[in-house]
Design a protein around this nucleic acid. Structure first.
Lengths: 152, 152
DNA sequence: TGTGAAATGAGGCTCAC
DNA sequence: GTGAGCCTCATTTCACA
């Protein structure tokens, strides 16, 4: 799909603030409401705009701990890898899961309330999955940047 | 701030779809529009709802590469750490930056279009920062899960 | 084919109870 | 917490370039 400068600006405004009104966008872009509306619908239809979400404050909700878990599997064929992914991604603690290059096979980003919940995740959820090799955890002392905004 | 089951359900619906209407929420919760509206405003005011954003499809925008960069600093005092954070977080390629435990000091999540852009980031942006120790990169072969939804 | 102006309807928001 | 009503904005229609 071909994108022009208007499309990019519309996406950029929406990814910074999904509650911006079409009128407000019209004031910035020199364009009236209708074409902006139609461009948004087109961007949604083509999947460039994936979804609109509210971002919650994890800290205020008691989620105080972010951990990165590097995992090596003992078997690396397609079937084993798929089985692992299917089992690990259902856990709500798993915010992100990447199949990676390097020493380990997978990198998980885990969000939990405290060490107790992390411990429970490792012992009662992760460890029940077969085919696990090495597991190495790294904790976040602090989050210094976290954005969903793509550079346009 | 005290949260009840209604608050949690409202946040959960909004973090899944920020475009849901108050009427639709009212149909699910057995509650009329006004109290839902007031609860949302209260959640926003207290910071539990941080912001509303559109999530864009990075792949369709040409951003094909996710990398994780582990960085050790050669100096670890507060001043040096802060200086590093201030310099690294301004780059749009840096989607996330965590100060971490473990072998390295920082973990960056980098989003770029291709290897050229990654190379440019490493050589012309990251490498210009003083105080760098070891840098170790891991690429994502594929993203198997990625969510902004917190378990409520 | 794509834009701007005007009409319509739905939903956010306020108020009295 | 409920229901009525205002009012803005999203959405549609249509004329025009």
């Amino acid at each position: 799909m071909k994108l022009d400068e208007f499309d990019r600006q519309i996406m950029d405004m929406l990814q910074k603030n999904a509650r911006i009104t079409i009128k407000e966008m019209a004031a910035v872009l020199t364009l009236s409401a209708t074409p902006i509306f139609e461009r948004i619908k087109r961007l949604e239809k083509n999947g460039l705009i994936d979804k609109y979400v509210a971002l919650l404050n994890a800290d205020l909700l008691g989620y105080k701990m972010v951990a990165f878990v590097q995992i090596s599997l003992s078997q690396h064929n397609l079937k084993e890898v798929t089985a692992f992914v299917d089992r690990i991604t259902v856990f709500p603690e798993v915010m992100e899961c990447y199949h990676t290059t390097g020493d380990s096979d997978f990198l998980l980003k885990i969000l939990v309330k405290d060490m107790d919940q992390f411990n429970d995740f490792i012992l009662n959820k992760l460890s029940n999955i077969e085919n696990l090799g090495k597991v190495k955890t790294q904790f976040a002392l602090s989050t210094r940047k976290r954005t969903t905004e793509i550079d346009l």
